[in-house]
């Protein structure tokens, strides 16, 4: 069941493992490496077919300079932040409350409501494309950051509620009962007893939702158009000019766009792994 430590296998197997691992790793990372290398190549390298070779000249400053100063990229990055941060705050705030309600109170229909939150996760989001687009259009939210944020909050709250409810269920119920005996109001129990205990869950969930939303491409394309509202994932395609795709700038842009989630991951690695396992086991 559990993988045996590699030290316990035969020497031959160990050697094979140690030689094959870097090779597999290299193959696995090859596309990413290609993007990274392309981001410092001049455009001409693409046209002359120099896809994998040494760059004919190093254009890192030039390419990244263009991304930051001669394109709408800063605007798109700002949009991404303005979409991701409110979504994280909104979804996490709502789901701590729903999680509290569903995890602590026993009332009729509790399980049914909980299942409805979960069921939302099983709807393939692609089938929502047309109705959601029409909805935002009618509400006058099409092509606005607000529309995107509201939809993301609504859609992510399902998963977050599952996560939070299970976490709150795992808390010792005696704490809440003790507070009730002391005559603490329910809202103060939530604020002063439960919320401090939920800190690790909130941190883990925030990191998770941040990467989800930052990397979202589908809804960005469906619900927004143009530099005034699109996040960076969709904005990268703006390097496609009328006739030509500027692959070197798209590569540089992709690297820039990928940095915040990567940074987030390294800074919050502990929470991230906790987040992935937290919801799964219970």
């Amino acid at each position: 069941m559990f993988p045996r430590p590699i030290e316990k296998s035969t020497p031959a197997a160990r050697v094979a493992y140690k030689t094959l691992l870097p090779v597999a790793l290299l193959f696995w990372l090859l596309p990413l490496l290609a993007v990274a290398v392309f981001s410092v190549k001049p455009d001409a390298d693409f046209t002359s077919g120099n896809y994998w070779g040494w760059p004919s000249s190093f254009e890192a400053l030039n390419n990244y300079g263009k991304v930051f100063f001669a394109s709408d990229m800063p605007r798109y990055l700002l949009n991404s932040v303005l979409i991701t941060v409110p979504t994280v705050i909104g979804a996490v705030a709502l789901s701590t409350m729903t999680g509290f309600a569903l995890g602590i109170y026993k009332f009729r229909g509790n399980l049914l409501i909980f299942f409805m939150f979960i069921a939302g996760n099983f709807v393939p989001f692609q089938i929502l494309m047309v109705p959601v687009r029409d909805l935002t259009l009618e509400m006058g939210l099409y092509n606005t950051k607000t529309g995107l944020v509201l939809f993301h909050i609504a859609f992510q709250t399902g998963f977050c509620t599952l996560f939070m409810r299970n976490f709150i269920r795992a808390l010792p119920f005696e704490l809440i009962e003790a507070a009730r005996v002391e005559g603490v109001s329910e809202i103060r129990i939530f604020r002063y007893v439960v919320l401090p205990l939920m800190r690790p869950a909130i941190a883990a969930l925030s990191v998770l939702i941040f990467t989800f939303i930052w990397n979202d491409y589908f809804w960005a394309v469906v619900l927004t158009q143009g530099a005034e509202s699109q996040p960076v994932t969709a904005g990268i395609t703006s390097f496609n000019a009328q006739y030509r795709a500027a692959y070197h700038l798209m590569s540089a842009g992709s690297i820039v766009a990928a940095l915040p989630p990567v940074l987030m991951f390294f800074l919050m690695q502990r929470h991230f792994i906790a987040g992935l396992t937290l919801g799964a086991v219970k």
């Binding site: 693409f46 046209t47 002359s48 077919g49 006739y243 030509r244 795709a245 692959y247």
Partner: peptide
């Protein structure tokens, strides 16, 4: 665009294309 290298490297002699 991916067909351009054949012309640049001399593996193909011509390209029916627009001025861009």
């Amino acid at each position: 665009q991916e067909a351009l290298p054949f012309m640049v490297q001399g593996d193909a002699a011509g390209y029916l294309m627009g001025n861009f």
